[in-house]
């Protein structure tokens, strides 16, 4: 499944490829090298549950209670970088102001339903980490609405939510993913029965605080100093 062909632009020039071979060999990518884990799950828009998509999370731990993940639309080489998710422990979540809590979603249902999984990982190993993920909260923004067919990242960031109960997930999307990765959500659900969510239960302010949320762009007036300094464009 190639996405590259859908993005406008010329094939990479030979000189550019040579340059990037050099940079890849000489430069260090320390923050990227911390990424150790691939999680697959589903996201939907915080204002529209009917728009759902498969999200591939590539995650690094900042410590035992904070993970930061790059979200791609596929696990392939030409995947599009469509968003960011932060994952934090229940402990840290509870320190957030209520106004902030509603942007975060719980992971209990996603884990327990089997719909959050780690492609390529043996189930027994996967489940050790999922025990922990089950108790966490996540905050996701998508910047590229590939589900509506955008060939470029257009518009403003979108706050995303995750599954919290049965029948939210579009069965055709579910089937497609189960088939592609050779997993069975039902089977996994049974194996994860004993797992438990946040110690204090899913917080009522999480998951949008029980309602929908949407992002809006607002034009602002910058401080007077900035306004005064904006001059007709004369380059350099």
């Amino acid at each position: 499944m190639s996405t590259q062909s859908k993005i406008p632009g010329e094939a990479t020039h030979a000189s550019t490829a040579v340059f990037e071979t050099a940079t890849a060999a000489v430069q260090r990518f320390r923050p990227i090298n911390q990424i150790h884990q691939h999680l697959c799950a589903f996201h939907f828009y915080s204002h529209d549950m009917t728009r759902q998509l498969e999200a591939h999370h590539f995650c690094a731990h900042l410590n035992d209670e904070v993970r930061q993940c790059l979200i791609y639309d596929s696990p392939e080489k030409d995947a599009r970088l469509i968003g960011i998710e932060y994952i934090i422990s229940e402990n840290l979540f509870l320190t957030l102001p209520d106004e902030e809590k509603c942007f975060w979603h719980s992971h209990e249902y996603e884990v327990k339903s089997g719909t959050l999984f780690m492609p390529g990982m043996p189930g027994a190993i996967e489940r050790v980490d999922l025990e922990k993920v089950c108790k966490t909260y996540g905050k996701v923004f998508h910047f590229w609405q590939v589900d509506r067919g955008d060939i470029l990242p257009l518009g403003i960031p979108q706050l995303m939510m995750a599954l919290t109960r049965d029948e939210q997930l579009d069965p055709s999307l579910s089937l497609k993913v189960e088939k592609r990765y050779g997993v069975s959500f039902e089977e996994e659900r049974r194996k994860r029965e004993s797992m438990s969510g946040p110690e204090h239960g899913v917080h009522p302010m999480a998951n949008g605080g029980g309602g929908g949320l949407k992002t809006e762009l607002r034009e602002t007036e910058m401080a007077a100093a900035a306004a005064a300094a904006s001059i007709p464009r004369v380059f350099v």
Binding site: H47, R165, E216, E219
Partner: peptide
């Protein structure tokens, strides 16, 4: 300049949320 706000809205649903 530009800023992003997050505001309440009704969610288009398949089944209840959360």
């Amino acid at each position: 300049g530009f800023a992003i706000d997050i505001v309440r809205t009704d969610m288009k649903l398949r089944v209840p949320f959360p």
